[in-house]
Amino acid sequence: TGTRRLSDLRVIDLRAELRKRNVDSSGNKSVLMERLKKAIEDEGGNPDEIEITSE
């Protein structure tokens, strides 16, 4: 578990975070980053400090 910047995430991490939020996880990295950023902002979170749970 740790905090990472949105830009540091790999595509696989972006998809996992989107799936956790029940958000569409298809598309390229830039699309996924925008989608995740919006989802985090909608939750009231900070997209520059994403809580990542290692699996």
Rank of each mutant, 00 (worst) to 15 (best):
L6A: 06
N22G: 13
E43M: 04
A39D: 02
E55W: 05
R19F: 08
P47G: 14
E41Y: 08
D42V: 11
R15F: 01
E34W: 05
R4C: 14
R21M: 05
R19V: 14
R15G: 01
E55M: 06
T53I: 12
K38N: 03
E55R: 04
E41V: 09
E49T: 12
R21L: 03
L36Q: 02
M33D: 02
G27W: 00
R10N: 11
K38W: 05
A16V: 14
S25K: 02
L6C: 03
L36G: 03
V23G: 11
K38A: 11
E43V: 08
L9K: 03
E43K: 06
L9V: 01
E34M: 13
S25Y: 09
G45H: 04
E49D: 07
T3Q: 03
A16Q: 09
N22Q: 10
N46A: 06
R5W: 04
N46D: 09
L32R: 01
L14Y: 01
I40A: 02
L6K: 02
R5K: 15
S54P: 14
T1M: 10
T53E: 12
S25V: 09
E51C: 14
A39Y: 03
M33G: 05
L18E: 01
S26W: 03
G45R: 11
L18R: 00
I52Y: 07
V23T: 09
I12Q: 15
G27H: 00
G44S: 05
G44F: 01
R19L: 14
V31R: 14
K29V: 10
V23C: 13
R19D: 12
L36K: 01
D24G: 04
T1L: 03
D8S: 13
A16P: 00
R15W: 03
V23H: 13
M33F: 11
I52S: 15
I12C: 08
R19H: 11
E43A: 10
R5F: 07
P47Y: 12
S54H: 08
P47V: 14
S25C: 10
R19E: 14
D48E: 15
D24A: 06
D13P: 00
K29R: 15
G27Y: 00
M33S: 12
D8F: 01
V11D: 13
E17R: 00
I40S: 02
R35D: 02
P47H: 13
D24K: 08
N46L: 07
S26D: 15
L6M: 06
M33W: 04
R4W: 15
K38R: 13
P47I: 05
D13E: 14
S25H: 14
T1D: 00
L36F: 07
E17N: 01
G45Y: 03
T3G: 06
G2K: 11
I50F: 05
D48V: 10
E55K: 00
V11C: 08
I12K: 14
N22M: 10
R5C: 05
V11A: 08
A39I: 14
E41P: 00
R19K: 10
G2T: 15
L14M: 07
R15P: 01
R5T: 10
D42Q: 14
E41D: 07
I52N: 10
A39Q: 12
V31C: 12
G2E: 15
R4K: 14
D48S: 09
E41W: 04
S30I: 09
D42G: 13
L32V: 05
E49I: 10
L9H: 00
R21G: 00
V23R: 15
S25E: 08
S26K: 07
R35H: 06
I50Q: 07
N46F: 06
I12A: 15
E49L: 13
D8A: 07
V11Y: 06
E51Y: 12
L32S: 02
E49Y: 10
E51N: 12
S54C: 08
E49N: 06
K38M: 04
E51L: 11
D13T: 07
E43P: 01
I50L: 14
L9G: 02
I52T: 07
R15C: 02
I12R: 15
E55H: 15
V31F: 05
G44L: 02
I52R: 12
K20V: 00
T53D: 08
K29Q: 14
G44H: 07
A39V: 15
D13C: 03
A16F: 13
T53Y: 12
K38P: 02
M33Y: 06
S26P: 00
V23S: 09
T53A: 06
D8M: 10
I40K: 04
K38V: 11
R5G: 07
I12S: 12
L18T: 00
G45F: 05
I50S: 09
A39K: 10
L18M: 05
L9D: 02
L9A: 04
I12T: 10
